[in-house]
Design a protein around this nucleic acid. Structure first.
Length: 419
DNA sequence: TCTGGGGTCCTAGGACCC
DNA sequence: TCTGGGGTCCTAGGACCC
């Protein structure tokens, strides 16, 4: 059996842990630059705030419904996630951390456990020890555990946020209840296609012929069907190094000058280099992109990217920043107002398996240098050591008007309880 | 004025090999 | 009138996830 543990409205719940006065009140969390809604409490959902809602369009509704609005505080959410996951790993030796707020647990050999009690115990401990409410779904396959989790979340009163699919009757009942668009792996396009054929529930989907699924949804759809039928098909996945790493941002204002853009892009490259070193990878390829604000129909539009094949694999901030600036130089065009830029590094390989090149290699002196930089930045705070090409003075400031304190990661932000 | 930021996998088709 | 039969690798595009 598999368990899927999912934190309820995770970001909103993190904010509430330290603000219990907000329990029962609608809470939303905004994306970078306070752009759009990326998390909603149940009350906010009920008030009619959709996912991805642009904040400025919903100010009225927020006010009318007394919605508490937060800027994204990823330092807090990352730390809370870590705490939740470390508790979950005490419940099974096999855990797959699927996202910041979700994990699968493999429950092999738990045959003589009462899994219902076990699920309730997981829920009790996580909530008690972190303050984060969770839902637990248990079933014979991963996709069915997803379904069970959804039921647990949808019917909190009847299920106490835990649900088990442990018989074929329960499986079929659950699949007949679940709308096709809510099935894990069925997105908007597939939903449209399936609904046109009168396939409206997960159950209907499992009754479709393999040939049709293979043709339109490829083997991915075929695997899903088998998994939903109760045959474990979707694998438990080990943690693997990433195959692509990106740092991209929308800007708080429009940039027209090459130099300004260059500073930001240089910093994105430095950030990618840091992420590469963290997983002990080097990249062989880099993509640089820039584009104007697509929502502004009154301004001329321009969008371009360039893919640079690097002469050697590297994770040196100095080298990656240099390549990034080169790429930017080649795609930058004067006369446009830029809203977004980013760096994506690809073709990653492990540091230890680098082939030496006869002609050109990454500067070996950078290896101890980067190690020292990482060390200092870890101890003294991020970005204490920067390249000269970065935004040394940091003239820009992300819009974050409603940022909560870093309660759990900054000693100065720890809550004070008056006696 | 204001509209996020990451990731993964699969397939078809073209270019190339013998 | 008729024009072989295998392969591999790479890329772009499309789908999906949180």
């Amino acid at each position: 059996m598999f368990a899927l543990v999912d934190c309820n409205n995770f970001y909103a719940s993190c904010e509430r842990v330290f603000r219990p006065d907000l329990n029962g009140r609608p809470v939303v969390v905004l994306s970078n630059n306070d752009g759009c809604v990326i998390a909603r409490s149940n009350e906010a959902k009920a008030a009619g705030v959709p996912m991805g809602a642009p904040a400025f369009e919903y100010e009225e509704l927020f006010k009318k419904n007394n919605v508490k609005v937060f800027s994204a505080n990823f330092a807090l959410y990352g730390d809370m996630s870590h705490r939740v996951m470390s508790i979950l790993s005490t419940f099974s030796p096999d855990i797959e951390i699927y996202s910041i707020d979700e994990a699968f647990l493999k429950l092999d050999g738990f045959g003589h456990f009462n899994l219902n009690d076990y699920a309730k115990d997981i829920r009790y401990k996580v909530t008690k020890w972190t303050g984060i409410p969770i839902s637990v779904g248990i079933a014979p396959t991963k996709s069915l555990a997803k379904v069970a989790n959804r039921i647990a979340k949808k019917f909190p009163v009847q299920t106490a946020n835990t649900y088990i699919i442990d018989s074929d009757e329960k499986r079929i009942k659950a699949l007949k209840w679940l709308s096709i668009e809510d099935v894990w792996g069925i997105g908007r396009q597939h939903t449209k296609r399936l609904k046109a054929l009168n396939v409206n529930t997960a159950y209907d989907f499992t009754q479709m012929p393999d040939s049709w699924i293979q043709k339109h949804l490829s083997v991915v759809g075929l695997r899903l069907k088998r998994d939903l039928l109760g045959f474990p098909t979707l694998d438990f996945e080990e943690i693997q190094p990433k195959k692509n790493i990106a740092t991209t941002r929308s800007f708080e204002k429009l940039y027209t000058e090459y130099d300004d853009l260059c500073e930001r892009v240089s910093s994105f490259a430095v950030s990618c280099a840091e992420k590469l070193r963290k997983q002990q990878s080097c990249c062989n390829t880099m993509m640089v992109f820039i584009h104007t604000n697509g929502y502004r129909q009154d301004l001329p539009q321009y969008s371009r990217n360039i893919i640079l094949k690097l002469p050697f694999p590297t994770n040196s901030a100095i080298e990656l920043s240099k390549f990034a600036k080169e790429g930017l130089f080649r795609i930058f065009k004067k006369g446009f107002a830029y809203k977004k830029a980013g760096i994506i590094v690809m073709d990653l390989i492990q540091e230890k398996s680098i082939q030496m090149n006869i002609f050109e290699n990454s500067n070996v002196k950078h290896i101890p240098l980067m190690k020292a930089v990482d060390h200092i930045n870890t101890r003294m705070g991020q970005q204490k050591v920067k390249l000269a090409s970065q935004d040394i003075k940091r003239m820009w400031k992300m819009r974050q008007e409603k940022l909560s304190p870093r309660y759990s990661t900054n000693i100065n932000d720890i809550i004070i309880i008056s006696s």
